[in-house]
Structures are given as C-alpha cells and as structure tokens.
Design a protein around this nucleic acid. Sequence first.
DNA 1: CGTAATTTTGAATACATTCAAAGATGGTGG
DNA 2: CCACCATCTTTGAATGTATTCAAAATTACG
Lengths: 250, 250
Amino acid sequence: MPEPISRRRPLLHEARCQTCSLSSLCLPLALELGDVSQFDAIIRRRAPLKKGEPLFRQGDTFTSVFAVRSGSLKQLTTEGAGNDQLTNFYLPSELVGLDGIDEEHYPGSVIALETTTVCEIPFDRLDLLSEELPELRGQLYRSMSKELRDDRRMMRLLSRKTADQRLASFLITLSDRFRRRGYSPYSFRLSMSRADIGNYLGLAVETVSRILSRFQNQNVVAVSGREVNILDMPRLISLAEEEEADVSPH
Amino acid sequence: MPEPISRRRPLLHEARCQTCSLSSLCLPLALELGDVSQFDAIIRRRAPLKKGEPLFRQGDTFTSVFAVRSGSLKQLTTEGAGNDQLTNFYLPSELVGLDGIDEEHYPGSVIALETTTVCEIPFDRLDLLSEELPELRGQLYRSMSKELRDDRRMMRLLSRKTADQRLASFLITLSDRFRRRGYSPYSFRLSMSRADIGNYLGLAVETVSRILSRFQNQNVVAVSGREVNILDMPRLISLAEEEEADVSPH
DNA sequence: CGTAATTTTGAATACATTCAAAGATGGTGG
DNA sequence: CCACCATCTTTGAATGTATTCAAAATTACG
C-alpha cells in the first residue's frame, strides 16, 4: 500500500543515525561518517508503536528490516490452533525481521511490549547499499551470524537446562543486554509478562512465577512486579550453569 | 598449517559447480553460467572426511564456510562439563559455518557422520565476490535467513512439542530434505545414532528408542537399525502436529 | 473505584528421565 | 571368515521435574 509522498514532515525526534546514541551498537556501527549519511538516507522513521501494537504480522509481505530505537518487542510465531511460540525479544539497536528475507513473508508477528520506536530499513535499498559499502555488508553478515549463534544458545537452553537454569540464564542475558546499552545490569524493568517469559523459555506461567519466588526467597534477586533487582550475581550465574548440591537448606 | 602448493592435482571426482548435481540447491543456484565459474574459482575441494572426523573444531579460527557435497555432518557445541548440544545436521547442498562469521572462531565442532565431502568457500573471497554478484549476495542473505527460520522452528519444537511430536517432526523434516534432493522421501538411512537424535531433539536416548518402537508397532514407520521406512505419512504428519484422541486402542 | 487481567500459591497428575540390564550391531584382528 | 569386544539400541521399573487444574491475591487500567 503506497504511502503519501509527504513523508518529509519533521518528526518530533528528528532521528538521524549521526546523532543516535545507539550508533555504536546498531547496523552502521562499522561505517565511516560519510557512509553513515548514505545509510541514514535510506532509513524511514516510523511513528511510535503503542504497547500491544504489531510492527508487522505473521504472513505480511517482507519489505524491510527494522532497527529498534527505543522500547522493546516480542516475536510470535503462530502455528495451528492458537498455539503461539515466542521466539525472541528485541531491545534497542537490535535488528528485527532478518528471518523474513528468504521468503515473501515474515514468519512471525512482532509486537511492541511498550511504547516503541523503530527505524525502518527497506531491504532492497539496504542490499544495494551493501554492494557499495563493504563495512555495511560485513555488519549485516555479522548481525545474522550473531543471531544464529544466539538461536543455538537458546536451543541448548531449551533442550538441556532445568527450569531454574532457564530463568537464571534469562535474567543474566537480559542483564547483560542492558549493561551493553548503558543501563544498570542489576536493576531493570521487565517489559514482558510472566506469560511471555514462560512462553519464551518453554515453561508454564506458574513455573516462572514459582521460580522467581524461590530466587527471591534465596536472596538471589528481589522481584516486585516487573521490577527486578539482582542481588547476588555470582550465585545467579552459578544457578544458570548447573544444578549444584543444595548449599543452604535455609 | 600451510598446504603444499601442488593442489592442482586432478581429484578423482574433479568437482566443479558447473557439473555438480546439487547446483540447483546450493549457493550458486541463482547465478548465471558465466558467474558460476567465477564462484567456482574461489572454491577449494577438500579430501573426503571419514566418519567421525571433524571438519573443524569449536574454537578454531573462522576462515571459511563449507557446502556439503555428499554425506552428512553434525554440529556440536560443548559448554561446561562434557555437556554437548547437537544443534544441527547438515545434508548435501547445505552451508556449514555461517554462525562463525561474526566472531573469530567457530562456535561449535562439525563432525562427519559418514564419509563426507565438502566444498570449502573462503569467506573473505566469498564476501568480495558477493560485492560483484548481487545474485550471490542475495542467495547468501537468503541462506542465512532460512537458517534463522529453521532455528525458530526448532525452538518451537523444543519448547512446545511432546517427545512423540518431536520424533514425528524430525522424521518428516528429514523425509522432506531427502525428497528435495531427489531421494525417496519414504525410505532412507539415518546417518546419525539414536544418541545424536536424542541430543538434537532434547530427549534421552531411551525415549527416542521407545517412541520409534511405538511408531513401529502402530505401523506408522518400519525401522530396522538405521533404515527407516515411512509407511503412513499422513498419520506421521498428524502425530507431529498435535496429540489427538487415541484413535485405535486396538 | 470496580472489573479484568495478571500473578502467585497449592495439590494432584503426567510425561520424560534415570537407573539397570539385556539384546543387537558392527568393526577389528586373529 | 569368524569370533570377540566395544558400542549402540531396546526394554522395564522407579523416580522426579514441570505441568495442569484450581483458586486466591495482587495489579493494572478505564
């Protein structure tokens, strides 16, 4: 569906890569200043998504990948009877939609977990620009490669880890992602529900809740609603790795 | 370790993309004839791997991706105490090593399940060539994108499917991959052990064995060692999808 | 402020695992 | 070529972890 040509309106947060605080994490990370503006030129700013709004829906025609600017999203794949699988959470600077390249359609819906802004990068233009800019091309390959590695880490989590280990790993991974983005790795807010976490980790909601309660009782974390405080990171890390002999029965 | 320069020896199966039966599935699939020979020029043929031999080991420096020419391989990621996770099986025409691009090292070991030949594609040359050949670049993006989609299907399998559904899905996926390669989708030989299957599907060996026996008793498949015959594909598909009310208690 | 949605907790159940052991297969050397 | 040993596969029984079902408590939101 063609959009009005009058997209030259100055958005409130006239967002350019050159002034974006995420540029050191995002796709143009490897580009020199002159090249960044070429990249910037193909990007389309989007109106912010409200909580629950889809960036796109499963089956929509693939046209673009998206870089998260602020907020967060989840990717859901529906198959058969109302049986969704949450396959990813996306935080600022991460690329959404790379798994749609090879088919006509996006393989899952991507939905905002809170108010979220994204940069739209039309893939045909990105591909063409990647011909001219080897660093951009390399970064694109690396982004996809990293996502492959992350996926395999996730498979390992799903197939070999206990519920406790999954929750601990999840919190550590989130913590690390926040740290990289300049936020506190010890204190953060979950933008997703317990149900989302359970769906993502292959656990029932009740299990997620129970284990968070247990972690709290063990003074590993303090959880209040969606606020998380990691109190004992070393212990959390050891919980994520392997079941150890119960140290403190009380 | 540098190899002798005399690699110009004519290999028994002097393997060129132009005469390769897999060319319609492999990376150069989208290339025109003239371009194929450019692609062919950067490829290095490798001596066949014997069963159990590694193509590369976890931690080895990333230099190349590999296209499987014949045989099959498994990818293993070791983390912590002897706790391997099998994250992928590779069949002819499939690309191995894409998850190593963004770090210095391969994130897992890849090991031949039987006598296996591969084409080595040095990644720096591939990247350069992908600058000149948009179709090659596109195919590379698509290959990675497809692998991302497959990974997410696998996550869904690991987090939502029962053991029966996992085994059924596994057999169907294999069947489909054989069919695409011109082999019978109903009768094939597993190159991997039950332990490998269990590791891959997140199940204990015993569970894999039990379920295969059950499928056999239900006349869905006939399994003899590593020979598999799919007797009732529609039933197998329904088994893969969802638990249905037991139809024939018999 | 009231209603719907989410989260927490408890008890019973189920599915796959673990432990144990027998049976089959395959590769190697005598 | 066959025998032997190691490895792989199959089967059974007991166990355990997470699920499901049920319901209360808390939170979010209009």
